[in-house]
């Protein structure tokens, strides 16, 4: 599969998550990781599956590196129909705006026609733990789900082939 990780980070934690996802997935897949700041809208493609990793800054705001991406989405309003993505949000539940930063990106992607797939992964830093292990568990479940869907599709194709 072709995975593209888009990360939005403030302190760098989301970037280390992206690094770990690259390590985890690269044995069996094409993977690249891009800071949201550096994303060019016309490279977004339905041929890739996007893993969006985004933290929260301050009082529920977007992390610095996600701000330009959100701005360009708002300004250009691209049609993202056909684009599939999964979300992983970082936050701290000692603030009432826990994980809100990632939701701000998720809301935009959905509103522009993209489809979110799988569980919305979240990590809560209020206990001082790192998000990386939670994210790895999330991505393993996600990939298992995607594989199962692909098998089911393949089975359907087989059934269709037999019936024909």
């Amino acid at each position: 599969m072709n995975f593209v990780i888009l990360y939005g980070t403030e302190s760098g934690n989301a970037e280390t998550v992206a690094d770990d996802l690259v390590d985890e997935l690269s044995a069996d897949n094409d993977v690249q990781s891009i800071d949201m700041t550096d994303v060019e809208l016309d490279t977004l493609t339905a041929d890739a599956f996007y893993l969006v990793v985004c933290s929260t800054h301050g009082d529920g705001g977007l992390p610095a590196s996600a701000v330009p991406f959100a701005e360009v989405l708002d300004a250009e309003q691209p049609d993202l129909t056909g684009i599939r993505y999964a979300m992983f949000g970082l936050g701290d539940s000692s603030y009432e705006t826990y994980s809100r930063g990632s939701e701000r990106i998720d809301e935009r992607l959905t509103a522009l026609g993209a489809t979110r797939v799988g569980d919305y992964g979240r990590h809560d830093a209020s206990d001082g733990s790192l998000p990386n292990d939670t994210a790895l568990e999330w991505v393993r479940n996600l990939v298992a789900g995607l594989d199962a869907d692909a098998d089911a599709d393949a089975d359907l194709d087989d059934v269709a082939a037999v019936a024909r």
Partner: peptide
């Protein structure tokens, strides 16, 4: 502020 302290863990790496 455990979440902020935890930034150090990425530097452990």
């Amino acid at each position: 502020h455990l979440g902020t302290k935890a930034i150090a863990k990425q530097f452990d790496r």
